[in-house]
Write a protein that binds this DNA or RNA. Structure first.
Length: 343
DNA sequence: TCTCTTCGACCGAGGTCCGA
DNA sequence: TCGGACCTCGGTCGAAGAGA
């Protein structure tokens, strides 16, 4: 068990024991519920109704259509809310109107910076739209992700954002739920994609300008239906069009940081010996892999050697729509120190 | 007639009770 | 043991009543 697993296990058990304590306390004294730790009952509309002498419908109207109440009665209810320390109960609202305001998110993992940053941007939309997110990491296991989707559906989510690529869009469309896929095969659902082809063209062109003798693109194998395939195609097309010496390495890139790191380390050794004395321009499928490669080079040589030029690929588009819509985000080329021309 | 307020069905799933 | 009726949770909402 890793340190992180131990930590999460401890947190889970601690929360579980707290909930158990609260439940025991409730059954023993019948005056406590989860969310209020001080032996005080959760205040409901019924309590406010009893306290003020109004019906609970009138209390409900105070929140949803206050103009239908006299100013005097609004003030009475407002005072009661303060006095009783009322706290909004979203669960009851969901029970009544069926709108959970939950959106499910399935991502392959969080160790790739692309996914964690994407999730970060998705979570930030709460302030604007009010939707909450239930997030699962599928680790590229189809059966696991199907199980997670069933779990999400049981919580009556109002939509799904899919960054995973194990489940085909035809199957996802059958759930009859608003779904947006990001950088995935998207024939039957809405999607948001980067212009991978143009991004690869820009990256490859930049590497070529650095004076590299050989250009190498490392990536996983994708079918042409997957947007990421555009990176492979863009790289190959530019190299062939301008007759640039190149090598395409399509391989399993791993399912964890450690696995990816080992695979990239092995690939680096192969490239290092195969193209000794030549300047190597390496185009990696994402910034995390580019950083891993950079770290291996620094560990080996103490710094980024002059005969290595590294470039990654990342983006963070987000959009949603009820109708199938496919939005293409134009890539922006960012020139960092890892692709400075040789002198 | 209009404004304000109340009543009670309803949402969904699990628990309880009672009769067969 | 089984099945059906009823209740529970906390809100929403349409219909209807009360009063000015």
């Amino acid at each position: 068990m890793t340190a992180f697993q131990e930590l999460s296990f401890f947190v889970y058990n601690h929360i579980k024991s707290l909930v158990f304590y609260i439940n025991i306390h409730y059954h023993k004294h019948n005056y406590i519920s989860v969310g209020n730790y001080h032996g005080q009952k959760n205040i409901t509309f019924n309590d406010i109704a009893k306290y003020t002498g109004f019906s609970k419908t009138t209390v409900s109207r105070y929140f949803n259509n206050p103009d239908s109440l006299t100013l005097k009665n609004q003030q009475i209810i407002s005072d009661a809310l303060d006095k009783l320390n009322y706290q909004e109960n979203k669960v009851a609202r969901i029970l009544a109107n069926g709108k959970t305001e939950f959106i499910g998110v399935i991502i392959p993992n969080l160790y790739l910076h692309y996914y964690s940053e994407m999730l970060n941007q998705i979570l930030k939309t709460y302030d604007t739209y009010g939707y909450k997110f239930l997030v699962f990491t599928g680790d590229d296991h189809k059966s696991t992700e199907r199980k997670y989707i069933q779990e999400l559906l049981s919580y009556k989510i109002e939509g799904m954002v899919i960054l995973s690529h194990t489940i085909p869009s035809r199957e996802l469309a059958s759930y009859n739920l608003p779904i947006v896929m990001i950088e995935r095969e998207d024939q039957f659902v809405s999607s948001v994609n980067t212009d991978n082809y143009m991004g690869a063209v820009q990256a490859t062109s930049l590497l070529a300008k650095t004076g590299a003798d050989i250009l190498i693109h490392i990536n996983a194998e994708f079918s042409p239906q997957v947007p990421s395939y555009g990176r492979i195609k863009g790289f190959s097309d530019i190299c062939e069009e301008y007759q640039i010496p190149h090598e395409l390495i399509l391989t399993d890139t791993g399912r964890s940081y450690e696995e990816s790191s080992l695979i990239l380390k092995d690939l680096l050794e192969i490239v290092d010996s195969k193209y000794q004395g030549k300047t190597k321009g390496i185009f990696l499928p994402n910034d995390t892999f580019a950083n891993i490669m950079l770290n291996h080079l620094i560990q080996k040589y103490g710094q980024l050697p002059d005969d290595y030029k590294i470039i990654g690929f990342d983006d963070s588009p987000v959009s949603m729509s009820s109708e199938p819509v496919h939005k293409i985000i134009p890539p922006i080329l960012i020139n960092r120190k890892t692709t400075e021309p040789s002198h």
